[in-house]
Nucleic acid binder design. Structure first.
Lengths: 236, 236
DNA sequence: ATCTATTGTCTCATTTTGTTACAATAATAA
DNA sequence: TTATTATTGTAACAAAATGAGACAATAGAT
């Protein structure tokens, strides 16, 4: 992988993406570990000179997950001087490139726009890029210390996700196209970090008139089979 | 006024501020008009190399309004290529500066962070800076066409304000320290653009336990005098 | 055929919200 | 001093939303 070129990009501005997935029991996010440094961080990147900010983030998330259509939303822009860490950036670049130069634009101060994405955990097999040893899922209550105040960015992302959860059933973006009411409830519980009453939850979801009921799902277990639901497409 | 110098600032990044005030009957915002151009726009600015983004916005709003302590919150970052307009920027700079240079950094593309501020309308006498003919209040349903997609930025600011209104009685930032329940209700109605039931509103506000009741306010009119309230400082 | 775990819905209690009613009151007019 | 008027604070009641428990339906195991 080449170092991104200064003349192709906007300066002093970057993005960081908090990519959420739901494993069935826990809410997780994708973190990458840089080669030979022990550094963990959020997947991020830069904006090309003639590229919309949104498109830059979509491009970056696609490179990391292979997903093209995904739920993606900006939540906050982080602009404190304290969040820059030129030393760490130098270590990363040094560990990966012979062409290390002391005065790279990458060591400048960056203002970073935070995005979060909600994706179907099952649809992704994350692949590390050339800069990173690994890219892996981490449960949100088990996040290691990260570079560049990224732990703070994650907290803010979760807070935003909680606040927006009720708007238009956002949680469904973490599930397959068809899902049971129980799965939807588990997603909500994972995001809110609290138990919800089963009957009240079901009544509320159905009353929103956003779900379409399909065939039953037979699990092979000895009990009544639940209906499958999907998000009504005309409510998007 | 001097043109801001390239070497002092972050490149490709700016901010725009939507400064809300409440005149007693309508919600208004501050717009400025540039010298000799007929161009209207939101007050905005740039970030110095060693300055926090938030501090840059505080500095800019203070220069325009004289206010130092104010309610200020970031709401969205605008990053589409379509929002840049080098031609308009050139017109503005030309109209104001002999030292016009064709290749100024100001003509580059900018990603702009949107902030909104809530201030006490009565406390401000807006003063135009050297670049602008006028800075004035405009009711939010009477905004002229603005440069750089600023109309869109205002819409998003209002939307965010509506969504956040219930969080911790944000509306009080548009009022003096002490205010009547009726004034608070009028602020809410102006923001939400709908009438609210008087008794339900009063009951709700009092139940939040965020308001402190003070002496009555005698208006001189022939009716029962309302209590004055303030925001409980320990709930900030 | 009986048993077990889970689901969908009903019912009822509780809480919240919306609306109307009404007494209290500050200033004015009679 | 005593009505009169406009507005305020709160109570009272109705309607709607929410929470919790009961229960029948049912897919598969025994």
């Amino acid at each position: 992988m080449d170092i991104p070129k200064k003349e192709d990009h906007l300066l002093n501005i970057s993005y960081d993406s908090v990519i959420f997935g739901f494993s069935g029991d826990a809410l997780k996010i994708l973190l990458l570990e840089y080669h030979d440094t022990g550094f963990f961080a959020l997947p991020g990147g830069f904006v090309r000179k003639n590229e919309n900010l949104n498109d830059a983030v979509i491009r970056g998330v696609k490179e990391r997950t292979g997903l093209e259509k995904l739920f993606l939303e900006q939540f906050h822009t982080f602009g404190n001087t304290s969040r820059s860490d030129a030393a760490a950036m130098k270590t990363i670049i040094k560990a990966n490139h012979d062409s290390y130069t002391e005065d790279s634009w990458l060591f400048d101060r960056f203002i970073s726009v935070g995005y979060y994405a909600l994706i179907d955990y099952a649809k992704v097999s994350p692949t590390p890029d050339a800069l990173s040893d690994s890219i892996d899922w981490y449960a949100i209550d088990d996040i290691p210390p990260l570079l560049f105040e990224h732990n703070l960015i994650i907290e803010k992302a979760i807070e935003t996700l909680r606040n927006n959860l009720n708007k238009k059933l956002m949680g469904i973006n973490l599930l397959p196209d068809k899902f049971t009411m129980k799965a939807l409830q588990q997603v909500h519980e994972a995001i809110l970090d609290e138990k919800l009453g089963r009957t009240a939850f079901q009544r509320k979801m159905l009353s929103l008139d956003l779900l379409e009921r399909h065939e039953k799902q037979f699990s092979g277990k000895a009990h009544k089979a639940p209906y499958l639901y999907s998000f009504k497409s005309d409510k998007a």
